[in-house]
Every structure is written in C-alpha cells, then in structure tokens.
Design a protein around this nucleic acid. Structure first.
Length: 752
DNA sequence: CGCACGTGGTTTTTT
DNA sequence: ACCACGTGCG
C-alpha cells in the first residue's frame, strides 16, 4: 500500500520534492500525505503541494475545487509547513465555510480551532469584535441586515426631508452598498451631478447615524475591517505575521473591497491561494469583479496558473454542450472541461406551446424518471427568474409530486424572529434605534405614531438616542423603558436560551400571537412555532460555540440568516433559480424557459458584458447535471399578468446539434440563418422556427413559425395568429424592429 | 389601532 | 397576475 503511494508520488512531477525544506515533520507525515494526495489527479496534486507562493487555481465546474482547497490546508499543516494558527480560509457563504470545516475535520487528527475559516463578513466581524476600540465601535455593536439597512436609510431620508419619490430608498441603498464595496466612503465618491451629490449627502448622514447608533451594515463590516488594517500598523502587522497562508474560495466572486482586504492581509510575504472559475462568474450585478483574477496574477506575480479541467460530475455530452456554449464568450482565461466518462445521453429539448404545457411535460418526464428509480431529490428544475416557479409549482401540486423551492424567506428574516431579536438587541445596545422602533409598540402598548415622533424630536434636539429620550419621558413610554431595563437585569446571569425565553414572555410576544383568532390564527400558530424554534436555535448555538454570549448569538443571527428550512431529509424535487444552483449537482436537470428575453434575460442587454454573464449562467446551469439534461421552452408565457410570445433562446443555437435530441420537431438548421446582421442574434431575435408539423396553417393563411418579409419592417417570423377574415391579425417578430401585431387586411407580408 | 384599498414594482442575491 | 408596502379612514 505504502509502496504504491510512494511510486505514485515519484511518478508525479508534482510530488513533495517541491518542498525543499526536509523537516522532520514532513518525514513523519509522509505516509499521511500519500493518503492525502492519493486519488488526486496531477494538476490537483500540483495545486495541493505548491510551495509557499501565491497561486491561482482555475477550477472548472465539478473539478474537485473544494477538495483541493481543503486538502491544501491539510497538507500544509500535516507537513509542518504552517501551524493551524497561520491559516486563513475565506468563503462567500456559511455553507461553504461549514463544508470546509467538516472536510478538514475528517482529514486531520487535530481540530480546526486556531484556523480562521469563515465568510468574508464573518471574519471581518471577528476582527472588529477583537479590536472594537481601535475600530471605533461599541463592544456590542450590532449588524444590520439588508432589511434593517433599508429601514435605517428611510429614517435618515425622513430626517433630511427627502422626497422618497425622487430618491428611491432601494436605489440609495444600492448606491451606498455599491460605493462601500468599491472601498469608497461618502467623501470619496465623485459626484458630478446634483442628484448624485444628494445621494452622497444621504450616504454621509446614514453613516453618521449608524455610528451614533452603534450598528454596521454588511459592507461596513468589510470596509471598517479594511480601514482598521490599513490605518493601524500594529494590527496589520500582527495579522500579516500570523496568516502565512490565505486561501480563498470562489475567487471570481470577490468585489474590489474584498480583494483589497486580501491584499492587505497578504502583505508582501504571505501566500494567497485563490481558487475560482471565471466561467462561473455570475454575480457582477452585486459588485463581483472577475477582473480580480487578472489583477491577482499581476499583483502577486503568479507564474503558473493551475487549471483543473477534469470533471468528475457529468457525462461527456453535457460537458461538450457546456464547452461549446461558453466558447462564445470573450476574454476567458481559457479552460476546457473533459471527462473520463462516456458521452451518455443526448440533451433533450422540448418546445411547448405555452408555459403551462411546458410544466406539464416536465411533470410527465419526472414521473417517468421516478418510475425508473431516480429519487426526486436527484432532480432539479432550474429557471432564470423566480416568477417562473409559479406555473411549475402548480403542475407539481396537481400531480402530487413533492418539491422544495429554494431561496424563500429565511429563518432569521421572519417578522416574529426579527421582533424577538430586536428586544435582545435593544437590551444589548440601547443606542440601536432601528431595533427600538421595531418593538416600542409591538405588541401594541399604546405608543402611537405621535408619541414616537415626539421622541424623535426630543432625541434630535438633545442629540441623544431614542432610548435616552424615552428614558426621560413619562407614561407608557417610561413603562416600556422600565420593561427593557427590568429584562436586562433579570437575565444578566442567565444562559442564552433562558434569556430568550424570558424576553419572549415578558415582551408580550408570546401572548400576542397566542391571542390571535380568526383568519390570522393559523399564521400566528406558525409564528409561535418559529419563536419556539428560536429557542432551539439558541440551545444549539450554545452547544456549538465557545462564545455563547448574547452578542455572539445576535451576530450569528445577522450573518447567518439560517439555512432555508429543515426537511432536507424527505425526497423532494429541487426548484431554484440558476443562481441558487451554483455549486450543486443532480442526476437530472431541467433548464426551463429557454426563451430569448428570459434566458438570456432582456435586461442583460443594457449591461456591459450582460450577454456574457447570461451565458456563464447558462454554463452553470448545464454543468449541474450529472446524467440527464432537459432544455425546455414555451412559445408563449404569462408574465406580469400578460401573455407574451417569445423566440427560442439564442443559447440553444450555440449548442452543437449532434448533442441534442428534439422531442418536439426541431428548429430549422443553422444554415437557415443569414448571419448578415449582428454577431449575436439577440437584439434582432432571428427567425428560426422550422414549420412544426403539428401546427398547420390556419384560416388566415399564416402559420406560427412562418418566415415572412414585410415591405417596411423587413424579415421576421410569425409568432401568433388571431381572428379571421378582416379581423385577422398576426404577430410578427422582426429581426430589426422587434415584435409587432399586423392586421392582415393592410399589411403587406410575403412568405419566405 | 386595525383594516381596506391603492400603488409600484416585478433578474439574479449572500452577507 | 401578484405581492409587499404605505396611507387614509372608520
């Protein structure tokens, strides 16, 4: 066994010899490392065993990215290259961080304590808690989630007397977060027009308000941490001396601020090990900058990019389709997936007349798959936008198939949970006006809008927080203050779950929901269950965390809004957006709504590299499938209450025909195009429906899919036909001018 | 205070 | 079509 491992290592050009330091520890762990490395392919081994230098690992879908990342850490530690203390591993989601810890625990005989493994936000929070004074924050600073941030912005705008019609709070929020993600404070933003200047003023006021109230939003966690490191040499040097190895997952998703944060921590001596896939960059819309990959190569003098191109997930045809599609993108770092598996099945394509029929087809296929023994949990229905799930759900319910929709409201975002947490937050930090406003009159205790306004005026006049103003008020307001103070002293010595139990009762939340009757009864019962679940979450938290303080739990609640729900066990279909599917895999995948305007989405056209991002999204969707992939589309679909006709997605034409099996009659072959127009036929949705045998010409003489020419509008394709005789109208999608309804009595249409 | 009605928005979303 | 949110009335 040992011999075999040794032979393999010798045979590999990427063996331990890379590591020039022949430490005793290395030798001791030789056997262990052969185990660690066995089963890795050569590029994976090369990545895992790289010497102390910065590296970019281009890891394709299903190429063992997480495995390489965790094995790298295990390798560094077991060879004695670095102690756990010197490891910083960063992810984007809590799920990914947990996964990494779980895998490491199973690989290493030591526990992961000492390493910093977590999300960007989690780690920044940790750092700010450790240096709250230097970061100019109260010890018990609270974290605003996006909802909290939005209400805080609305409050600022109200105080500034700003018309929320002219300045839409949501947009201001994007502006503020967007700026911070670029590393910009209000006075760093260059504003050349009055509108932007006003937004900058709101930005500045908002930050001032957050500072007064002792709260930070998500991007503030990062920015504040970045500023702490850049301004405080002692702290910066401390962490630079500590984290010899910095490892980043999903590097293509980093925003400019996150990249600067990483650079600062890496300093000039530490190794940044970045794993990512430019072809799976699908979060540009929220500030991710794929360009960071090229910058990394330059800034860190990365000499060799290691590519992980062997895919262990999908059959050949699926990969071939993905490769063909993504090859249409520009400026790729370059990478082509391959597999040792055979070609497998062709991709199945289905064209439905309507979205409802598309859903019905999917249901019947699922029933077929089910009868073949495929578990429902191994099947995913993917769509570009959430609105599409509705029709699918309807059909699934009728067919009695169980399913789970991902991406709904999460646990800590539920109203009743937010209320309960708000009580706890005010107890922790009375300056948190956001939290105070949420609960001062919930459950209702006779403190109306008028009283609250008065409080706000008093607070503003005396330059204090609402709680201080409330403490000086009388009547019901002072009763409220008394309640908070009493809660705080009554729970001072209690363990976390008991603190929460006390607050749930004393606040009147339990009583409030218990008293609901009539139409709201059911809803209230569910809310009570969730409050009970909050107690369970607290109990679990105490078990799992060393620091089981209330502050720590509240951070946890903000940073980890809670995995979607329990119920992972039951065998149910997965319904989700393509975005949400990243990182997952299924035996069978349905990519639904393959229509121009939907996927690629219409709005992507106005954005730089919008089509490229949509194509990457499609690439992600395709590569989720292990064995079987369906692509379905509908000629007409109900959207925003209106039935729309659409052409098939231009992406369909980017898939090699020989990989496709058309269940419905297939589209006209590529030769039917005249590529005289734009390089991508998206703007001028190209006419390419073959005459489907099933749909004969109707009384009007025109049939759907017919290629036509109009004297004025040029070439197009018939999307639908309506009415007869003098009333007959046809809807035509023209290459150049979009779709139009034409009355057949007047329009001069010629068949092509 | 709570309900009824009106309005705006509806690509993707983690922290 | 549908949902979330805000305002105004009883």
């Amino acid at each position: 066994m040992k011999q075999k491992g040794e032979a393999r290592l010798r045979a590999s050009p990427f063996c331990l010899v890379h590591n020039n330091v022949r430490t005793q520890a290395l030798w001791d762990n030789y056997a262990m490392n052969t185990t660690l490395l066995s089963g890795l392919n050569p590029p994976q081994q090369q990545a895992v065993t790289l010497p102390h230098q910065s590296a970019l690992i281009l890891a394709g879908a299903g190429s063992g990215k997480t495995r390489v990342l965790t094995t790298r850490i295990a390798y560094l530690i077991s060879t004695g290259t670095v102690s756990p203390h010197g490891i910083l591993a960063v992810t984007f989601t809590n799920k990914a961080a947990k996964e990494m810890i779980t895998r490491l625990t199973s690989m290493l005989p030591i526990n992961t304590r000492g390493m910093w493994i977590g999300t960007f936000h989690g780690l920044c929070n940790r750092m700010l808690r450790a240096h709250f004074r230097e970061a100019n924050l109260p010890q018990t600073f609270q974290i605003l989630d996006s909802g909290d941030q939005l209400s805080a912005i609305k409050r600022v705008m109200k105080a500034m007397n700003i018309d929320d019609k002219k300045f839409i709070p949501r947009e201001v929020q994007n502006f503020i977060s967007g700026s911070k993600e670029q590393g910009l404070r209000a006075n760093d933003v260059e504003a050349y027009d009055p509108y932007t200047r006003r937004k900058v003023e709101i930005f500045a006021e908002y930050d001032a308000q957050c500072q007064r109230e002792g709260v930070v939003d998500f991007s503030e966690l990062l920015l504040r941490s970045y500023e702490l490191l850049s301004r405080n040499a002692a702290i910066r040097e401390h962490y630079q001396a500590r984290f010899k190895h910095i490892l980043v997952d999903e590097f293509q998703d980093t925003n400019p601020l996150q990249y600067r944060w990483l650079k600062l921590l890496a300093g000039k001596d530490n190794a940044l090990f970045a794993v990512g896939d430019d072809d799976q960059s699908i979060y540009a819309f929220r500030g991710a900058n794929v360009g960071n990959m090229q910058e990394l190569l330059r800034d860190f003098h990365v000499e060799n990019v290691i590519k992980l191109e062997q895919n262990y997930r999908s059959h050949g045809n699926i990969l071939d389709a993905a490769n063909a599609l993504i090859s249409n993108n520009q400026n790729r770092l370059g990478k082509e997936l391959w597999t040792a598996e055979s070609g497998g099945e062709p991709l199945r394509v289905y064209e439905a007349p309507t979205d409802v029929e598309e859903a019905n087809f999917i249901v019947s296929e699922i029933q077929q798959l089910k009868s073949e023994g495929i578990n429902l949990r191994e099947i995913a229905l993917l769509y570009r936008s959430n609105a599409q799930s509705r029709v699918l759900e309807h059909s699934l319910v009728s067919a009695g198939l169980s399913y789970r929709v991902y991406g709904g409201l999460r646990f800590f975002e539920r109203q009743e949970i937010k209320h309960a947490l708000a009580y706890l937050r005010v107890m922790e930090n009375t300056d948190d006006d956001n939290a105070l406003l949420r609960i001062i009159n919930f459950p209702t205790r006779g403190i109306g809008a008028r009283s609250i306004e008065q409080l706000q005026e008093v607070a503003k006049m005396n330059n204090t927080t609402l709680f201080d103003a409330a403490a000086r008020a009388g009547g019901k307001v002072s009763a409220f203050v008394g309640m908070i103070v009493a809660m705080r002293s009554a729970t001072r010595e209690l363990p976390l779950p008991e603190i929460i139990g006390h607050v749930l009762n004393e606040s009147g939340l339990i009583a409030h929901y218990s008293n609901e009757t009539g139409a709201k009864k059911r809803e209230a019962e569910e809310r009570l269950e969730n409050l009970n679940e909050l107690l369970n979450a607290a109990t679990l938290f105490v078990h799992e965390n060393e620091d089981d303080s209330l502050t720590s739990f509240l951070s946890h609640a903000s940073l980890e809004a809670g995995e979607h729900q329990a119920g992972d066990q039951d065998d149910a279909l997965h319904l989700m957006t393509v975005h949400a599917s990243k990182g997952l895999e299924f035996h069978s995948v349905f990519i639904t709504g393959m229509e121009e305007g939907l996927f690629p989405h219409q709005n992507s056209q106005h954005m730089e590299d919008g089509l490229g991002e949509e194509r990457r999204l499609m690439y992600v969707a395709i590569t989720r499938a292990r064995r079987r992939l369906y692509l379905t589309f509908a000629q007409s679909r109900m959207l925003h209450g209106q039935t729309n006709s659409a052409m098939v997605s231009s992406f369909m034409r980017e898939l090699p025909e020989e990989l496709l099996h058309w269940i419905t009659p297939r589209l006209a072959p590529r030769s039917a195009f005249k590529p005289a127009y734009a390089p991508y036929p998206t703007q001028h949705a190209v006419a390419d429906y073959a005459a489907p045998a099933k749909r004969p010409a109707d009384m009007s003489g025109w049939r759907i899919g017919q290629n036509v020419e109009h004297a004025k509008f040029g070439e197009g394709v018939v999307l639908s036909v309506e009415g007869n005789g003098a009333d007959a109208r046809v809807q035509v999608q023209f290459r150049k001018t979009g779709s139009k309804w034409l009355s057949l009595e007047y329009a001069k249409l010629t068949a092509l």
